[in-house]
């Protein structure tokens, strides 16, 4: 199976075992008792140090839309794709593409984080991934 790697380091963990969930990497501030994504250099509320944490892979759909415009950085016409905001249990809201079509989504539904293959290396087959959510 082709190897999946994040587009950029420091945002997400993609386990080699596909049975294990993909997780985002965030920062926890003990001083503020708040979690942030992506990782912060310092707590934005208290300016105290933060620790790096992996976030829950399942959250709740806060809002969604279905977009008919080319994706960021592209001018290619698209058939449409979903985007959503998902609230994770740690109190973090994530914006990302979502799987499905118009009519599939309802605010409050459970969503799971999965890798989103953006570029595949034509030489070694490596899949460079962002992330997206899929309905549970």
């Amino acid at each position: 199976m082709a190897k999946m790697v994040p587009l950029e380091e420091g945002y997400m963990v993609i386990p080699e075992n596909p049975e294990l969930p993909c997780r985002l990497i965030g920062s926890y501030s003990k001083a503020a008792n708040k979690t942030y994504f992506p990782i912060r250099k310092l707590c934005p509320v208290t300016s105290e140090p933060v620790e790096t944490v992996e976030l829950s892979p399942i959250g709740e759909l806060y809002s969604w839309s279905f977009i008919m415009m080319p994706k960021m950085g592209s001018r290619e016409k698209v058939a449409g794709y979903g985007v959503g905001q998902v609230d994770l249990p740690e109190g973090v809201r994530i914006q990302a593409p979502i799987d499905g079509k118009m009519g599939d989504w309802k605010i409050g539904m459970k969503m799971r984080l999965v890798p989103n293959v953006v570029v595949t290396d034509s030489e070694d087959g490596t899949q460079y991934c962002g992330f997206k959510f899929t309905p549970v």
Binding site: E8, P38, P97, I107, V119
Partner: peptide, 26 residues
């Protein structure tokens, strides 16, 4: 290194304004 899209710019403004509208409707 390979030229890859950034993790930070995954969504068009049209997307997040639409989600604001959707939440308002809800």
């Amino acid at each position: 290194k390979k030229r890859l899209p950034s993790m930070e710019n995954i969504m068009l403004p049209a997307g997040f304004f639409a989600m604001w509208a959707q939440r308002r409707m809800h």
